[in-house]
Simulated assay, not measured.
Amino acid sequence: MRARADESRLKVWMLLGANRLVVAAILAAVVFTSLMVLAVVIYPSLQVSLQRGDTLETAFTTMVSVIVTAATLVVSINQLVLSQENGPLGDQRRRMSNTEDFRTYTEELLGSTAPADPSHLLRALVDESRQRAKRLRRLVGENDRDDDLQDQLDEFVDSLEGNAETVHDQLEGSSFGTFDVLHAALDYNYSWKIFHVDRMKNEFEDSLSREEEEGFHDLKTALAMFGPAREHVKTLYFEWALVDLSQYILFSAIPALVVAAAMFLFVGEGTFPGTTLGVEDITWVTVAAFTVTLLPFLIFISYILRIATVAKRTLAIGPLILRDSQR
């Protein structure tokens, strides 16, 4: 996906691959470093500002209000997510029926019991599309065909096999609850493959035998089944991630509140009179405390970066290509 979109490895890692708490820690380090640089460069120093007014009280009283508001917002997010899981019996029955219908279609496609584990299910669909692509190439190769069709099909199947093998390896050993399953699913550009299957079938329709037409149809069916399966896994991951986000924000809000309250209740201009590395200790303490109070917000940013990126990359379902990374 990174190679298709021509994006830097660092950008993809920050937006998608990295642990969200690691991203939040990196953002916190950036905030702390930036504020320390500003504290050293800007004149007058923080020590002087503290002597002139109630800088700490104003700053950290405001942060207490912000943290409480953020915690309230988290409760609202949780209610929104959980409301989708709650409902009358009829709604739950329809959800169950839709799930069973999809599993029935999948079992007809695979010819075996559909896996219950999301990573195994996606891997089975990827493997099925690879097998059907190889079968189609074998069917076309057995007949005297237009070299142009054979060349295009060979190139297409080679690309599909390479992509399928990469995704298969990524899904192997992945477990739901982490981003690994969805990240691997995003690497399989099934929309682009469906488009090429339709294009080749329509372009060479007059010269195709009945068995070859069925081969194209079977391959498209396998690729099309991957779409709703991936979207279902994406929806479940979003709900899982939002619940995790709510928990992490609430957990981080407690120490953030304690630090903010301690700073405006107990810390003044004479509390930390020394210097470290040429910078007043009160500056180190104030900047570190302010960074801690920002942790709930930084965790929120790290999760929304991933969720928004995934949502943007999966806006369309089926053979609609909105980004180069889907090609």
Rank of each mutant, 00 (worst) to 15 (best):
R137Q: 13
G17V: 00
D101V: 14
S34H: 01
T166H: 03
T314W: 08
K201M: 07
A260Y: 03
G141K: 08
A25W: 07
V167E: 07
Q51C: 01
Q51E: 12
D198G: 01
R230C: 01
P319M: 02
P273R: 00
D54M: 09
L15Y: 02
L295A: 11
K234G: 07
R20F: 05
L27S: 01
T309H: 05
E128C: 12
G318M: 05
V30P: 06
E165Y: 08
P88C: 09
V279K: 03
R210G: 07
W240A: 09
D146W: 04
A114Q: 06
K134F: 05
V140H: 02
K201P: 02
A5N: 00
N78W: 03
L16N: 11
T113Q: 15
L182A: 04
G215D: 05
T55W: 15
D6L: 12
N86Y: 14
T72Q: 04
R20H: 07
A308F: 06
K193S: 08
I26S: 12
V140D: 05
L160V: 15
T166A: 11
E172C: 05
A222C: 05
L89H: 14
T72L: 15
D91N: 15
P255L: 08
S83E: 10
A256F: 04
L125T: 02
R94Y: 13
T221K: 12
R52D: 09
I299A: 07
S159D: 02
N202L: 01
E203W: 04
D187W: 07
D151M: 04
K312S: 14
S246R: 12
V64T: 09
Y43F: 01
V81A: 07
S207E: 09
I194P: 03
N143S: 14
V23N: 10
K312P: 06
V66G: 13
S65Y: 08
R4T: 02
E203R: 15
L322M: 10
D147Q: 11
F102G: 10
A25G: 09
D6Q: 15
E85F: 08
A29Y: 06
V267W: 04
T33Y: 03
L122C: 12
K201E: 15
P273Y: 00
